[in-house]
């Protein structure tokens, strides 16, 4: 009887989630809905980017579905998929090394070394590469001095420079989630695998790697999504070769002052990114299912749980 009033003062459980819901609504939902709404509008001819919405129309999508969009999208996806995979290939050993091989007391320093570049502005870090890659820069001169090259390097304003730039800019976003998962991995599990007779490689492939899957997925998404929309790195380092979809959106907003068409292209770009993620997700689910079936071992007297699940559990 005495407790009843106190209970009624309690906020419902979801109240704690309100700030984050508020954040998502204000900074994610509202902008996305606005962009989708604008994509059904029409630019008022001659105006500085004013858009009219009567009637709502699909014409902007018709304007956007042109060979140019698909050419640029293809270039973008080539850069972003290659970049994401390179980040994984380079980032995994680094994260593994930091989380497992390095004594705990050194980890702070290694993490710090990874974080320090973030103190400098993204754009400035990218522009700095222009100095390194310049045909008459110190790298070029040095390579010629030691006799590795006869002429100036020609890397700036090529796709190779863009690829280098995006891997450099997004690599930490891959390393951090991988580090966190690897760091949380119980060393006992690897020891158990070893005790049960698995080689180092087998332990890595069948214990460590499957347990890191959440970190790998988080890293892939964290790198792939912003990289696909990034056009700054490409514009700074790639010259004419660095045309990415983000630049198409920007030029509609800033050059053509056509917010409706820019929004339609942005929606299509978002759709393309989601499509790629969906395809990768389906392939990896299928792969996992096949693996599951192949590895299935029936142990007499049990329900027949497969080994992979047993190790995971």
């Amino acid at each position: 009887m005495h407790r009843a009033p106190r209970r009624s003062l309690r906020l419902p459980k979801f109240a704690l989630a309100l700030p984050s819901w508020g954040y998502y609504v204000a900074f994610f939902l509202v902008p996305v809905v606005l962009i989708i709404f604008y994509s059904f509008g029409t630019k008022i001819p001659g105006s500085a980017g004013r858009t009219e919405f009567s009637p709502l129309t699909l014409d902007r999508y018709r304007d956007a579905i042109k060979p140019t969009f698909f050419v640029v999208l293809q270039q973008t996806m080539r850069i972003s998929i290659t970049g994401t995979l390179l980040c994984l290939i380079i980032g995994f050993p680094v994260a593994y090394f930091m989380a497992i091989r390095i004594p705990a007391r050194w980890r702070g320093i290694f993490l710090g070394v990874l974080i320090i570049p973030f103190w400098t502005n993204f754009l400035i870090r990218t522009i700095a590469w222009r100095i390194v890659l310049s045909p008459v820069g110190f790298l070029s001169n040095w390579l010629q001095d030691i006799g590795m090259r006869d002429s100036n390097i020609q890397v700036l304003n090529t796709k190779a420079a863009v690829q280098l730039g995006v891997v450099y800019n997004y690599l930490p976003l891959m390393i951090f989630p991988l580090f966190v998962t690897l760091d949380r991995l119980e060393p006992a599990l690897r020891e158990a695998s070893k005790d049960l007779g698995a080689s180092r490689l087998k332990t890595f492939l069948q214990v460590t790697l499957p347990l890191c899957a959440p970190g790998v997925i988080a890293g892939l998404l964290l790198v792939f999504i912003p990289l696909s929309g990034d056009y700054i790195t490409a514009a700074v380092l790639g010259g004419a070769d660095g045309n990415m979809s983000g630049a198409l959106v920007a030029s509609q907003f800033l050059q053509a002052q056509n917010q409706a068409l820019g929004s339609a292209i942005a929606v299509m770009l978002m759709g393309s990114i989601l499509l790629v993620i969906a395809i990768v997700a389906i392939i990896s689910f299928a792969f996992k299912a096949v693996l599951h079936r192949m590895r299935k071992v029936d142990i007499p007297g049990t329900r027949g749980d497969d080994l992979a699940v047993a190790t995971n559990g």
Partner: peptide, 17 residues
């Protein structure tokens, strides 16, 4: 103006291909 921007975008796409 809008046509000029379209030509500019298409040229950029072709240059990066």
């Amino acid at each position: 103006q809008d046509r000029l921007v379209e030509i500019y975008n298409n040229t950029k796409a072709a240059a990066g291909a």
